[in-house]
Amino acid sequence: MRFKKQKNHRKTVRFFSVCFGFRKPFKVLCDGTFVHHLLQNNLTPADKVIANCLSAPVTLFTTSCVVRELNSLGASQSASYRAARQITIARCDHEKRIKADACIEEVIGEQNSEHFFVATQDADLRKKLQQIPNVPLIFGLRNALFLEKPSKFQREYVKLSEEKRLHMTEKENKALAKRIGSISAKVDAGDSSDEEGLGHHSPGLQPHNTRNYPVINRDVKDRVRFKRKKAKGPNPLSVKKKKSQEKPNVAAGKEAKGDDDDGQSKRKRKRTRRGKKVSEGADGMAR
């Protein structure tokens, strides 16, 4: 049951988001009866409870007339009055206090330009707001909150607005006829000038598929060419490696030759006689 309720709420939120442009975080306008219901059923904090109902973040609003009405009810509504004072006040422009339901109706207006969700326990107020196309309604039932489905009037309004979008208005029809008449007049003038040899059609009036482009500008290389796959060699990983066959006598010959080369490859040391000459010169001086 709970899953079905959440599914219906998501459908309703999607309906108002797609058809009327509601965006997150949603604005919820609360009246005194709804605030009192939340406190009686321990549905606190209010913003989290409503956010769970809508499956989206919300911002709570109320009006100064609602707060004044709760204050005028005395000690019985003192807790509701204190809770309502903590909510953001929406501008209502009423110097003197009026009834809460009338104040909310004026704030919503005929278009609901602020895209408010209205949360109320007043059944009469909900019936009045159902006749406004883009006003979603929230109400409480015991310890649960519910989002009302779009009313029949709201659904019919959406259907009519979609049908209107498919058809042109009278103003658009007149503009289109005027445009067609001007284009046809230019085309007739161009035809007459061609017959007399005085001119030719303007390229702007010709459709795109009738323009004659020169053949030189067409590039044949731009055509897609598919390369045919040719047979390749075998997979080197699947080919068996050749065994290395070495003759023993050749290997032995290489070893013997290597030994001879080692003896011949030794470099001879060049000795100098500089030290000897120096020693001989020293002996001569001594004599």
Rank of each mutant, 00 (worst) to 15 (best):
T12N: 04
T12W: 12
S17M: 10
R23C: 10
F26G: 02
F26T: 03
G32C: 10
F34G: 00
V35G: 03
L38H: 03
K48T: 04
A51D: 07
A56W: 10
V58N: 05
R68S: 09
L70P: 01
Y81E: 10
E95D: 12
R97Y: 03
A102Q: 15
E105G: 02
V107S: 05
V107Y: 02
V107F: 09
K128G: 04
I132H: 09
L137R: 07
R142M: 07
N143A: 09
F146R: 02
S151Y: 12
K152W: 05
E156Y: 10
E156V: 05
Y157Q: 00
A175V: 05
I183C: 02
S184C: 01
A185C: 01
V187T: 06
S192T: 13
D194L: 15
H201A: 06
H201K: 06
P203H: 11
R211F: 13
P214R: 01
V220N: 07
K221S: 14
K227H: 09
A231W: 05
A231M: 09
K232P: 01
K232Q: 03
N235C: 10
L237C: 03
K242L: 03
K243T: 10
Q245V: 15
Q245S: 05
V250Q: 15
A251W: 15
G253L: 14
K254A: 08
K254P: 00
G258K: 12
D259N: 06
D261Q: 04
D262Y: 11
Q264I: 08
S265K: 07
R274Y: 04
G275A: 15
D283H: 05
R287H: 10
